[in-house]
Design a protein around this nucleic acid. Sequence first.
DNA 1: CCCCATAGTTAAGAAAAACTTAACTAAAGC
DNA 2: GCTTTAGTTAAGTTTTTCTTAACTATGGGG
Lengths: 317, 317
Amino acid sequence: MAIGRSFPPLKSLQAFRYAAQFLSFKEAAETLFVTQAAVSQQIKLLESTLGVTLFDRQTRQVILTPEGQYLFEYIEKAFHLLEEGVKGITEDPNPNTLVISSLPSFASRWLVPRLAAFQNQAESINLHLSPSLNIDNFTNNDLDICIRLGQGNYEGLKSSLLFEENLVTVCHPDLVRKDESIYQRLTNIPFIADSGPDAQHIRPTIKRFLNDFDLPITSHLRIGDSTALIEALLSKQGFAMTRFGLVYELLEKGQLVCPVPIYMKSRYDFYLVAPSPHFRYQKVIQFKQWIEKEVRVINAAWKKHCLDNPDFKEMKV
Amino acid sequence: MAIGRSFPPLKSLQAFRYAAQFLSFKEAAETLFVTQAAVSQQIKLLESTLGVTLFDRQTRQVILTPEGQYLFEYIEKAFHLLEEGVKGITEDPNPNTLVISSLPSFASRWLVPRLAAFQNQAESINLHLSPSLNIDNFTNNDLDICIRLGQGNYEGLKSSLLFEENLVTVCHPDLVRKDESIYQRLTNIPFIADSGPDAQHIRPTIKRFLNDFDLPITSHLRIGDSTALIEALLSKQGFAMTRFGLVYELLEKGQLVCPVPIYMKSRYDFYLVAPSPHFRYQKVIQFKQWIEKEVRVINAAWKKHCLDNPDFKEMKV
DNA sequence: CCCCATAGTTAAGAAAAACTTAACTAAAGC
DNA sequence: GCTTTAGTTAAGTTTTTCTTAACTATGGGG
């Protein structure tokens, strides 16, 4: 049932606004991202509803009638106000404070140590880092942007890929000897299972790999928190398959090594996530540009890792 | 695909306008003739699209947030302009001239003789009567209102029932003798067929009636124009089944009589038809009130006709 | 002078938006 | 403590809007 008895549909008024502005149904259609037929039908509907002819048709062009000119004055002003209001409301209410929600592991291991660099180049922006394990809906807080590990599709939110994650096996270097076989390593080094929600798809792959060596998948230790997982690895409690982005610096420093020559693409990647309007905030634009540049080191590290370990094999999910 | 990328849906802005005005989703819903759930969903959609909280919910009531107050200023003004513009355009561009389209038969036999009465009471209104056989679409002319015989459903137009038509048999009084039977009359008086488009449903009924007398339906004369039909009747060429409204005055004067004691409701009735906004013009309001009063004589005449002829039988279609 | 391109129109069907219904929550009021 | 009220949400339905395809009528160019 129609809203506002006998008031014309708002869509038809919007179509009229652009048709009258350009004196062209075609250009109005382009502006509104619809077909010319849609505009034609909307104008017809508007004229029928009002009982007034708004355009004189001249086969290939239209001219506003006096009534059309009269109406356009009002409609144009009205839509201008709507746009002004919406623009004003979506403009950043807090241009000098950037509130970021991020995975704790990513925040503590990667982001925080680098934020100084961002703050140096964006001195007028105060940062508020809010570690969180879950996506946010952005409607009851002043959160500006999320850094998420996921698949990038969140209802009502916009996602921008930061970097694709890969999964590698890592352990303390003291747990491996250069001359032992893979079989020996798999037998001698305990497997630490990552029980985090974004790691569920790793286990079947590990299981299939171990089956090739006729070995069962057992793990005396299951850790769901990435930070704790790193501590367990560094304290020589076993090996795990985990995100390259999490461990690549430790690999570069030689604090962790890859005991097993396999890797796989993660089902989840890192995204910047926020409501569409937030991506227009200047502070978010700056942060996005900065972090996209910073994560290039992860991509470069991955490329180098692949070059340094040409024998590593990709496991398909 | 959405119009105006990232601009919120216009319906949601309209819902917001009333929700903010009344500080009540319930009252906004009533104003918009939708359910409370619809308003709730529209507000949620608007907040999600803008990435802004517009209302603080307090279980049974809502309060505008500062952002909501800010936006409301613009939205309220904008919708006010829309309404002003639409109101201004639908106001009667020609308040002193009333253009009426009517069936020629109805116009010449009934309306024109009476228009003097209307003009006497509406001296400032100039009348322009335009006989027409077809409904009009009102978009390329200055027509104000139509008087139509039909079923009252015309796309994009509003209809108001004037009076219900009935069909009676009529002929010149010289063609009947008081003492002859129905059978004798049906045999002796030729049948004139009305071949007008709104009379198509009469023939099967006449046929069925004649079958009861074991008589074929034959007509040596077929006339599609009501005015010509009346002339044929008055010139003693036979009997016809036609609209009571067309002939009731001739019946009252004794210039025509009913040879056969049957009648039937017409499938088509008389309607006033025009675009919705035209029914708000003052001149149309006056005309409608006047003609609705005038047609009461037809209704009264029908009632009297029924009372004067209690033996007449209704034929069902 | 003819053919092609252009802008607008319309009907029919598809897609998207908007709405309703029903069940729910949380507080206010009696 | 129970009932009422206003807002919320999910699922399904209805309505609106759009697309596509075929069409018309004109203008322009060859």
